[in-house]
Nucleic acid binder design. Structure first.
Lengths: 340, 340
DNA sequence: CGTCATCGTCGAACCGGTTCGACAATCAGG
DNA sequence: CCTGATTGTCGAACCGGTTCGACGATGACG
């Protein structure tokens, strides 16, 4: 494999001149530049990433830490990842995907060894043990998800509070007065998944203001538990006319449950979910939903991260916490209530 | 950040001695080793990945090239990826996930620049343009999926031919004589997705031998096309009593279609799919299926790749093409046929 | 008691880039 | 014609590891 020394020899110049000719960081005569470029082309020269990283203290690689918990719904994760990898590539970066269970150790490893120029963290917990490590790291970091303490990091997330309010308002306006909200399983909350209670508490508050009865329950993330839960809920609360679903697995399981019970949506039951359009298409979900925009979030996180990586000025800017406003995509799964 | 020079100074030895003490590649007195380890600990020393890569010509990173085509079913991909990243980490490697659309350019970039010690390729096409690049690369490569020409690379895949035969035999034994096989969309075939015709042709051949009528059709990968296709098929072939599904999106869409038509499985229709247990659980699919074992395939590919990376002896071994035998997981979705 | 291994450590070179300071050649201005 | 600035190139140092060869000290042995 050709080194820059080979290119220089082939072009009849010194290594430094070859380097300058290729990078353009100093004026080089047209004649010499041509020779160097031709030599690089002829030898199929590609700079050695390790050597360049050593010299420039830049790897052009971003770290992406994603945790896959047993009780989480893996398919939903894929789109966050693609949002990150695709945007990173557009900006000239590759992505190191780390799925190690011990996130703290993983983060330490990739930051201390200088494998990456910056890190995107996913599956953020309320009191995430990785955050202190990331704050102390020499590389900047961006989060997809809102932790309890945002200091020292850029944060991007869906506005789950507003999402809860939008859902309640929408059904309230249609005349619904008794609703059920199904969230994630309880372990997700115990693990610090703030998005669960952020949406739930805001929805409860808004329901109270509107005089709507809202029953908030934990969901499940696996079959057959999900199906059973749905049946039990519909049995227990026959007066409920609307369902709010903040849990991909539950949304995916609902169609067969309504079928089994002979319920028609929206005639007998109104439904609003919270997931991505991509997810809706994949699982052919027929419900109106709040777009969770995973690719946009991943993309935003990367853009901000790269800004900080590449500019010392940007690195000194105050940290941002940016929420995407929930957008309700109508699929006609809500209607005025009708007593069952 | 501490360098090995800092550690050496702190321990009162030379840089080379510090290096040997940490790596154990030469005998070092107990006394000195202790001092070096203590210094490394105190300074929180972590070797610089770029410097090490430059010196050793090893990065401890594997490349993973995955393509996400519009018409492919993304959720199924996640498990292959996890199989790769988790196994890689167990063996001491990190994973560079590359999802760039231009696979050839991406592969060139990561191999030429020596960012990775080896590469796993997914979504292999019959005549995959990336293979010549990978064969010529200095790093070893492993494929998850079977191309037309396997030379120079290790290949791992499900035995799709046998899977097709197992499906046909299973239903034939139960007494079925008219079956439908739904594969992937036609573009997947045009793109060179050999697994489509490998399963299909073997199934057709076996059906011929058994005197069974097997209608093989292309599928769809998106709603609402998938649902429409299924309805049309069941309308057009009322005499068919068994469905073979080699397409995750179709399998995921089938339950609601059978519900809508009031068909019961297996009483009115027998069904066998081909996907992973993980996928079945996620989508709560109630069908018997051939396990496609994505995590096992990813894991096998990485193990072989790392063997070749780490041992010159292994690098000289003949290349392997290894098929996982299809295992039929029974979920009770097949029964003797009953005329509809 | 001299000789030869062995053991433990050190200095120096190397991996392949980037970048700083120096310097020769060219050119414009006084 | 001399001076000073500008342009283009080069050599050397550096980034932070690893590894080779050498060398002094120690111990075994004849």
């Amino acid at each position: 494999m050709a080194t820059i020394g080979d290119v220089a020899r082939e072009a009849g110049v010194s290594r430094s001149t070859a380097s300058y000719a290729l990078s353009g960081k100093r004026p080089i005569s047209e004649e010499v530049r041509r020779r160097v470029l031709a030599a690089a082309e002829a030898l199929a020269y590609t700079p050695n990433a390790g050597a360049r990283a050593l010299a420039t203290a830049r790897t052009k690689v971003l770290g992406l830490l994603a945790q896959f918990h047993e009780d989480e719904f893996a398919p939903a994760m894929m789109q966050y990842i693609l949002g990150v990898t695709n945007t990173a590539r557009d900006l000239g970066y590759d992505t190191l995907l780390v799925t190690e269970a011990d996130g703290v150790r993983a983060l330490r490893r990739i930051t201390d060894s200088r494998m990456v120029d910056g890190v995107v963290l996913m599956n953020i917990a309320q009191d995430d043990a990785r955050l202190p490590i990331l704050r102390a790291a020499p590389q900047p970091g961006a989060l997809v998800g809102l932790p309890g303490d945002c200091s020292g990091l850029d944060v991007f997330d869906l506005d789950f509070e507003e999402a809860g309010r939008v859902m309640v308002d929408h059904l309230h306006r249609l005349g619904h007065r008794e609703l059920i909200l199904i969230s994630h399983p309880e372990h997700v909350v115990e693990r610090g998944g703030a998005y669960v209670w952020r949406l739930r508490d805001a929805a409860l508050e808004r329901a109270r203001q509107r005089g709507v009865t809202l029953r908030a329950v934990y969901g499940e993330s696996r079959q057959p538990a999900v199906g059973r839960l749905l049946h039990d809920l519909l049995d227990a609360h026959p007066a409920a006319t609307g369902l709010l679903i903040n849990n991909e697995a539950v949304a995916a399981a609902l169609p067969s449950v309504t079928h089994e019970r002979g319920l028609r949506v929206p005639d007998d039951l109104s439904v609003i979910g919270r997931y991505s359009a991509e997810f809706a298409a994949t699982f052919s979900l027929p419900y109106s939903f709040i777009e969770s925009a995973p690719d946009r979030l991943g993309s935003m996180a990367v853009r901000q991260l790269v800004r900080r990586v590449e500019s010392t000025a940007a690195r000194k800017e105050p940290f941002v916490v940016r929420f995407i406003s929930p957008e309700l995509v109508s699929r006609g799964s809500t209607a005025p209530p009708r007593p069952r």
